[in-house]
Lab assay of single mutants.
Amino acid sequence: MIFPGATVRVTNVDDTYYRFEGLVQRVSDGKAAVLFENGNWDKLVTFRLSELEAVK
């Protein structure tokens, strides 16, 4: 189960963010908004829950 605050990895091989890890900001309607941070940039991207896996 994916909840806000969880760290997730993108599993969709066709996505630009494949294998990126980010922090879930919100979850609704089968989608999750994931925040990616890297140095001087932040990006908030929405994914279907089926495209994400929780990082242990």
Rank of each mutant, 00 (worst) to 15 (best):
L52P: 00
T16Y: 14
S28M: 12
S28F: 15
K31S: 09
K43L: 13
L49V: 09
G22V: 03
K56I: 14
V34S: 03
R9W: 10
F20A: 09
S50N: 11
G22T: 01
L44G: 03
K56F: 13
K31N: 09
R26L: 12
A54P: 13
F3D: 04
L49K: 03
F3K: 11
T16R: 14
W41K: 10
E51F: 06
L49F: 08
R48Y: 14
L52W: 02
E21R: 07
D42H: 15
K31P: 01
T16W: 11
F20Y: 12
M1Y: 11
S28N: 09
V45Q: 06
E37T: 15
R26K: 12
K56C: 09
V34R: 00
T7K: 13
G5D: 03
G30H: 06
V10C: 05
E53A: 07
V55Y: 05
E21S: 07
A6T: 12
M1D: 14
V8W: 00
L35E: 04
K43T: 12
L44P: 06
P4K: 08
S50D: 14
I2H: 02
G22E: 01
N40M: 11
Y18I: 01
D15K: 05
K43Q: 11
D29R: 08
S28Q: 12
L35W: 10
G30I: 03
Y18N: 03
V45M: 08
L44F: 06
F36W: 02
T7S: 07
D29A: 09
M1C: 12
L52I: 09
V24F: 01
D14G: 09
V13N: 06
D15L: 07
A54Y: 14
I2L: 06
E53T: 09
L35V: 06
V55F: 06
V45P: 05
D42W: 15
R9F: 06
V55E: 03
V13Q: 11
A32H: 01
V13E: 11
P4Q: 07
N40G: 13
V10W: 01
L23S: 08
V55R: 04
W41M: 12
V45C: 08
A33P: 00
V24W: 01
A33S: 12
R48K: 14
V34D: 00
G22C: 02
S28A: 12
L44S: 06
Y18R: 02
F3E: 10
N12I: 05
G39Y: 08
S50K: 05
K43C: 13
G5R: 02
Y17L: 07
K56V: 14
F3W: 09
T11F: 04
K56N: 12
G30L: 04
I2M: 04
D29M: 08
R19W: 09
A6I: 12
Q25K: 10
V8H: 02
A33D: 15
S28V: 10
G39W: 08
F36R: 00
I2N: 01
T46D: 08
V55H: 04
E51N: 05
R19H: 11
G5W: 03
A33L: 15
E37Q: 15
S50M: 06
L52Q: 00
G30T: 05
S50R: 05
W41H: 10
D14N: 14
R26T: 15
V34K: 00
V10S: 02
V8N: 01
R19V: 03
E51G: 03
N40A: 11
L23M: 09
L52K: 01
L52G: 00
V10L: 02
Q25R: 07
K56P: 14
T16K: 15
V55K: 04
R9C: 06
R9Y: 06
M1R: 11
R48W: 14
K31Y: 15
F20P: 00
G30S: 05
G5E: 02
L52D: 00
A54G: 06
D15M: 05
M1N: 12
G30W: 04
S50Y: 08
D15P: 03
V10F: 01
L23T: 14
K31L: 13
R48A: 12
T16F: 13
A32Y: 04
L23Y: 07
F36M: 06
T16Q: 14
V45H: 06
W41E: 13
L44I: 13
T11D: 03
F3N: 06
N12W: 04
A6M: 14
G22S: 01
N38E: 10
G30E: 06
L52V: 05
E51P: 02
Y17I: 02
V24L: 03
E53Y: 05
V24T: 02
L35F: 09
K56L: 13
S28R: 09
Y17R: 05
R9A: 05
F36E: 00
G39I: 09
N12G: 05
Y17G: 02
S28H: 13
T7W: 15
S28L: 09
V13M: 09
R26H: 15
E21I: 14
V24M: 01
E51A: 07
